[in-house]
């Protein structure tokens, strides 16, 4: 039996959680001994090559492509983990949830004080995924198995969580890793 596979995605996030994952520094060498990376921005594999043990999701769902991606992850991963505040709560992108989508687009492309858009075009190429009416946290779209909070969760948090999961051990995070003020 080969190594278990892990996949990651950044949906409506800032890639900060992925940066945090890279912050495990030289432990990444240990990680590649433990797992193979499948679909992930880290190795730039675009399509699932098969079933994965763990999927790490950064970011919530802001558009239809995010939803599609997230559902693909759910279909291919045994264990799905929401990583970081955007995946768990919607995070900063969800600040737009207090206003209708139309107002949001108008502010961004037509009425904002720094907008220069003499032709008044709101981007709507068919290649662009359509936005959702609001930003949804991942567990509102698919079932999520675990949550790792933080903005971003620290490298140590991610490392401890992955190691515990891969060794089938309970996760014991020291207080410093789960305090956020």
């Amino acid at each position: 039996m080969g190594k278990p596979k892990i996949a990651t995605a950044s949906l409506a996030g800032c890639f900060g959680c992925h940066m945090s994952l890279l912050d495990i520094d030289d432990r990444i060498l240990k990680l590649v001994e433990l797992v193979d990376f499948d679909k992930s921005p880290i190795d730039d594999i675009k399509k699932f090559s098969g079933r994965c043990l763990v999927g790490l999701i950064e970011g919530g769902c802001a558009n239809e492509e995010n939803v599609h991606n997230l559902k693909e992850f759910r279909k291919h991963c045994d264990i799905l983990i929401s990583v970081g505040d955007c995946a768990i709560n919607g995070g900063l992108p969800a600040m737009r949830n207090v206003m209708p989508l139309k107002e949001c687009l108008d502010e961004a492309y037509l009425n904002g004080p720094t907008v220069y858009n003499p032709e008044g075009i709101v981007p709507s190429d068919k290649e662009l995924p359509l936005l959702l009416d609001k930003v949804y946290p991942c567990h509102h779209v698919v079932k999520i198995d675990y949550y790792l909070p933080g903005c971003p969760p620290s490298a140590d948090t991610l490392w401890e969580a992955l190691v515990a999961l891969l060794n089938n051990k309970p996760l014991e995070l020291p207080y410093e890793l789960i305090k956020y003020d």
């Binding site: 239809e64 939803v67 209708p100 989508l101 139309k102 687009l105 709101v122 709507s124 068919k126 359509l130 936005l131 959702l132 009416d133 609001k134 949804y136």
Partner: peptide
């Protein structure tokens, strides 16, 4: 969830 965007984009 896509209703608003479909109406705004007209597609």
């Amino acid at each position: 969830a896509l209703g608003d965007a479909e109406r705004i984009a007209g597609r």
